[in-house]
Design a protein around this nucleic acid. Structure first.
Length: 471
RNA sequence: GGCGGGGUAGCCAAGUGGUAAGGCAGGGCUCUGCAAAAGCCUUAUGCGUCGGUUCGAUUCCGACCCUCGCCUCCA
């Protein structure tokens, strides 16, 4: 069985068949961050999901082209820029760098291309000109350009591919901002926003006057530039389904650049929101954790990543520090097991355990069922631990298990805990304690253990002698 | 109001028309000078509620309840 994924277009799980006639190349676009602040881990859930899919596709042998845009011009950014007095680029690059640093800490593989909106103004203007030429867009008196949903539909397109839209029942217009009074219809959306005084220096020349791109158009322009006018996978958070992705489809298919019979995107995938105490984690509710908050609480990127990878991407997931601590313990079990196996394996090489990999693949093929995959892994680890306990593991078996984990971790990307080298003074204390134990001076031995614990090291006495661990 | 997800143990979370994976936490035991780690055992007659179909439903159907989200700022 091959990979199956839930496509928002059909609202059902479909067989994944790449557009590539040879079936090897896969193009993946994920709507990236708006760099106006530090991203919170709810934001990162989506990016970790995209990373997981990219890694799994690579695991399956596909050649993946992964593009994630950086939205570096937008209302909140402009507010931030004028508040900070910095230039647009100075302002956004700082948060972009922070984002990439955080993403790396979470074990994310960098996308192959990370186009910035401000560096694609020409492509954006070109696309808007195309839409104006087809009369799917219109100029407002203030110099803004809007997309006309009515004309788009009149041209035979369907608006509402990703969700059922009931135009009569929509509470449309409740939050129409004052600068959009010039729209022909409240449902229309901005392709180009004419410059207003509050924009400060943030504007670009265009055939319609100074201004800046609307939000949706940048993703259409950049995805089509880097992946072509039709591509396989487009990902994002579930809140982007409407209007962002619906509008992307409208612009991109309205522009009519696709080959006959081809769509803009074949598979749309959306990640559910992270929740905190049962509520959506969001900046506006203030109930969010940034990665930095969690690192400050001494959690690690791999622990956070592994927690994000315990739940299916389409299910809401309640984020708690308690569960994060649980993820740490669970990873610790894996670390322990593999550390023991490494001691046994030595330099022996062996091929991975195909049965374990087959089970893993079956779970992941099923719309990235990570929970089932982890279930299989922990069953396997229990078996390994039993064999280890009985001292029945050969070097070849240990090596095979390690090779298996290496393959799996190519997808999960939680890695292995780096071996901590104890500094000389710590080793000296350890030896002192061993001497005390030999002399049956357990009071002194326990005192030294307590001292080491304060210094951040935990002692485990094993038949082979004591081992030092960092908690 | 419209639309779309969810409701499975203390906390997370898979799954199936035939009697509930896995993780964390908790309890017992083994091992240990004591710990730690690891292992074994243990923790849901129950899968939101009520009906229906069926030999049998947590799984299918219907109604309802609760909850989260989207409805033009949003991962």
């Amino acid at each position: 069985m091959g990979l199956r994924l839930f496509n928002t277009l059909s609202r059902s799980v479909e067989n994944f068949v790449p557009r590539d006639p040879r079936g090897t190349k896969v193009d993946l676009y994920c709507c990236g961050p708006t760099v106006h602040n530090f991203a919170h881990i709810g934001n990162f859930r989506t990016f970790v999901f995209a990373d997981l899919l990219r890694r799994y596709l690579e695991f399956k042998g596909y050649e993946v082209r992964h593009v994630m845009n950086i939205t570096d011009v937008e209302d909140k950014i402009i507010k931030g820029v004028s508040a900070s007095g910095a230039g647009l680029t100075d302002y956004t690059r700082r948060y972009e760098a922070a984002f990439l640093e955080d993403f790396r800490a979470l074990g994310g593989l960098l996308p192959h291309h990370m186009p910035r909106a401000t560096e694609h103004i020409r492509e954006i203007i070109g696309l808007i000109e195309n839409l104006l030429g087809q009369e799917l867009a219109y100029r407002a008196s203030d110099g803004s350009v809007y997309f006309s949903i009515e004309k788009y539909r009149a041209a035979g397109h369907r608006y509402g591919q990703l969700l059922n839209l009931n135009f009569d029942a929509m509470r449309v217009g409740e939050r129409v901002s004052a600068d959009e009074y010039d729209k022909e219809s409240v449902a229309d959306f901005a392709l180009w926003k004419a410059r207003v005084a509050d924009d400060g220096a943030v504007s670009w020349p265009s055939p319609w006057g100074e201004g800046r791109p609307g939000w949706h158009i940048e993703c259409s322009a950049m995805s089509m530039k880097w992946l072509g006018t039709s591509f396989d996978l487009h990902l994002g958070g579930e809140d982007l389904i409407f209007p962002h992705h619906e509008d992307e489809i409208a612009q991109s298919e309205g522009a009519g650049l696709q080959a006959p019979g081809e769509r803009f995107v074949k598979y749309w995938l959306h990640a559910a929101h992270l929740q905190v105490d049962g509520k959506k984690m969001s900046k506006s509710l203030g109930n969010f954790y940034t990665l930095r908050d969690l690192l400050a609480k001494r959690f690690t990127g791999r622990e956070i990543r592994s927690l994000l990878l315990t739940a299916h991407y389409r299910a809401p997931f309640n984020f708690t520090l308690e569960n994060l601590a649980g993820a740490r313990t669970a990873l610790g079990r894996l670390d322990e097991c593999f550390a023991k196996l490494r001691e046994i394996a030595g330099e022996t090489k062996a091929a991975p355990n195909e049965k374990v990999l087959a089970e893993f693949t079956a779970a992941m093929d099923d719309d990235l069922n990570v929970s089932a995959a982890w279930g299989g892994i922990f069953d396997w680890v229990r078996e390994l631990n039993r064999s280890l306990e009985a001292a029945k593991v050969t070097a070849a078996e240990a090596s095979a298990a390690l090779a298996t984990w290496q393959r799996i971790d190519q997808v999960f990307g939680v890695g292995q805990k780096p071996d901590a080298e104890a500094p000389p003074e710590i080793s000296a204390l350890l030896e002192k304690r061993q001497a005390a134990r030999k002399a049956k001076d357990f009071k002194l031995a326990d005192a030294i253990r307590a001292q080491l614990k304060t210094a951040g090291w935990i002692i485990e006495d094993t038949p082979k002698g004591p081992r030092l661990k960092r908690p």
